[in-house]
Amino acid sequence: MTTPSGDGPLSGLRIIEQVGAGSTDMGRVAVAFAGLLAQRFGATVLRLANGAPDPTEHWPPLLADGSSALHRFLTAGKGFGTVQPGDYLVTDDPATAAAWRDDRKVLILPTLDDSRPQSDLTVMAASGLLDIVGEVGRAPLALPGYQMGYVAGMVAFNALLASHLSSILGGTPLAGEVAVLEAARWLNWKNLLSEVSGQRAAGVGRAEEWQITRCRDGYIAPVFRDRDMPNLARLMRVPALLEERFATAAGRRRNLADMYRLIEAALAERTAADILVEAAELKLPFAQVQSPAQVAADPQMRHRRFIIEGPQGPMPRLPLLWNGQSVESRQSGRDA
């Protein structure tokens, strides 16, 4: 999976990741995730050491030997080196970006319009993303892991590619700029749009029709619409689900507590596997809540070889196939 074998979509592109005095923890992750995507797509990605230790080496989740799974994920296949003409820069340090020699650069800022200190959690707070998950009366739940840095890094990667395409399609490179808070608000566009179009957005405590439900050996994510109610009643062996009050989405939302009392009681003694088999027969696209280990072992993921061997151990490949092959295997010459 190492970069410079020369057969990835971005082969020949060199990208420099640099953090500096103005970097933040969130920005550090964003820069590294942008570089991760570039590396997986075949670019040569180099990290410029600034003399300071890399704190992500100690960030959770940690592995048995005390090293960081995050650090392994973010840095696999990257190298260290010096800047050459034509390199692109990804940084979250404004001074580093300002000093770069040309417009082949992307700067990731916490926000565009002020200099408030920000973290993943405060970005979620300020974007409305903490008004999505949780229970009334309890502190809201944050998205897991490093989502704000990853999303901003993905946006920065796209800015870099847009700039590069501009240059190779006959134009010039275009300096890119991305703000983590703007990217977070962009994710939340549906709720924003609901508000401005007069349909009050539904935050924590909303009547969510599809709720994670416990079964005998885990949890199920049920999905159903009006036309599915007869099959839902069959799956649950609960004729009461055919009552008029459950016939429409509005009715179901008004009677959510009653409906889920029926569903939970019906699923309590059944296994996830049993439920999913019958749901599939009834064309109900339910899913099981799976842990990462279960996902990795799932027949679909195994068939598509989602877990690949990285330089230091197994890790997820890019979530796509490229003419039927993983991008990483193309670079290393392995079969997909």
Partner: peptide, 30 residues
């Protein structure tokens, strides 16, 4: 589905080594 998993890619690395914490972090440590 793969994309959603990729966005917690570090959790897969930890899970495959048996060290996935019960309470997963949200953001860098502070």
């Amino acid at each position: 589905r793969e994309l959603s998993s990729f966005f917690v890619g570090e959790a897969f690395i930890a899970a495959l080594e048996g060290t996935l914490p019960e309470d997963y972090p949200d953001g860098p440590p502070a």
